[in-house]
């Protein structure tokens, strides 16, 4: 049984990605494009030279963190659809500190990152508390929190950070994650030190979940709240803390964007989609820290490579969004894939 589960754990995501790419090719064919040319452009756009490679890593960085934000909450049986809002408030808080505080880098940068993480954590705290104390479904609350974050942040950028402008000033150099070393390696792409923070965060999640009592309790609550309660665990504390930590990961993702990629924050007309993509990443990565890193790299490469498709192959970038949506469907419907594999095996015997 366990070997079977392990096999499915790897086979289902791989088959889903392949199916997604195949359907993507069919869509390209039926809209009159050459799928081979399309996928070659996608590959070159993601890994063609050092510059695109740098940009792919840059895009992967926040996806790892939002993927962790969703996966971490999943471990406790919670669906954190609010990573989107947590990213936005984390971004805002980090840039805010980057703008107003004046300190040497060794204090300024960690402070900005920490504040971003804290803001995300706070944004996760309320849904967690409502779930723990009142049993309110976290999905709806986090969706609502996303919009509250979006509109409030836009208002703060317009009236507090700037004087009715749409973009804040650039943050001070002492709060920047930009790395001259990484940039010179990659022909001045926007890759920054954030990737190391993201990888470290993945390690932290693995460590918490696999190696601490707290992680054990989190998983136990996810499996069976009543049994956890009976064995003396504090269920509502675990639920709240799980959402807070999930928010911290997402807030960090926002801080990476604010301090690394953009160095500022702009009024947003819609969501960044980092949080929603995080759901896809967590799902494809089977909610495992290592899986999340791989899935984030895949989606980061797909999204970065998509930029090359219109110019080289005439394929609109949205093809990648369709492929990602299809991959989510296939993973979510893994019941179907499992059934097909088992059926196939039975016939062999």
């Amino acid at each position: 049984m366990t070997t079977n589960n392990k096999m499915f754990g790897i086979l289902v995501p791989v088959i889903s990605v392949l199916l997604g790419l195949i359907v993507g090719a069919i869509i390209m064919l039926s809209s009159g494009h050459n799928p081979i040319k399309g996928y070659v452009a996608l590959w070159n756009g993601a890994f063609g030279d050092m510059y695109t490679l740098g940009e792919t890593v840059r895009r992967t960085t926040p996806l790892i963190l939002t993927g962790l934000a969703v996966a971490f909450a999943f471990k406790t049986g919670l669906f954190n659809i609010g990573a989107e809002g947590q990213v936005i408030v984390g971004w805002l808080a980090a840039v805010w500190i980057g703008l107003v505080v004046d300190a040497p880098m060794i204090i300024h940068l960690p402070l900005a990152i920490f504040t971003g993480a804290l803001a995300g954590g706070l944004w996760g705290f309320l849904p967690g508390l409502l779930k723990a104390k009142l049993g309110v479904h976290e999905v709806i609350v986090t969706i609502m929190m996303n919009y509250i974050a979006l509109y409030t942040t836009n208002e703060i950028i317009r009236s507090v950070l700037t004087d009715q402008k749409t973009t804040s000033e650039a943050i001070s150099a002492t709060a920047s994650l930009a790395s001259a070393w990484l940039q010179s390696l990659t022909f001045y792409s926007r890759v920054h030190y954030g990737i190391f923070i993201a990888l470290f965060a993945a390690f932290i999640m693995w460590f918490i979940i696999q190696r601490t009592t707290y992680g054990y309790e989190l998983k136990a609550v996810g499996f069976n709240q009543h049994a956890s309660n009976y064995s003396g665990m504090n269920v509502s504390k675990n639920i709240t803390l799980s959402m807070v930590l999930a928010g911290v990961f997402a807030g960090l993702a926002g801080a990476m964007e604010g301090l690394g990629t953009y160095g500022s924050i702009s009024v947003m007309s819609g969501f960044t989609n980092l949080g929603f993509d995080g759901i896809a990443v967590a799902l494809l990565g089977s909610n495992h820290a290592f899986g999340v890193v791989l899935a984030a790299l895949l989606f980061g490469a797909l999204k970065e490579g998509a930029g090359e498709m219109p110019t080289s192959a005439g394929v609109p970038t949205e093809l990648v969004d369709i492929i990602i949506a299809l991959i989510i469907f296939f993973v979510a419907s893994s019941y179907m894939i499992r059934w097909a594999i088992l059926r196939f095996k039975k016939e062999e015997n």
Binding site: I27, S31, F79, I81, V139, F276, I279, A280, L283, P316, E318, L319, V320, D321, I322, I324, A325, L326, I328, F329, V331, A332, S333, S334, Y335, M336
Partner: peptide, 23 residues
Amino acid sequence: FHANQVVSGVAINMLALGIGVYL
């Protein structure tokens, strides 16, 4: 297929926007 309904809904949102803008 007993998929997680929230996940499937999220995929519907991405798919619709992807298809709409692509076409």
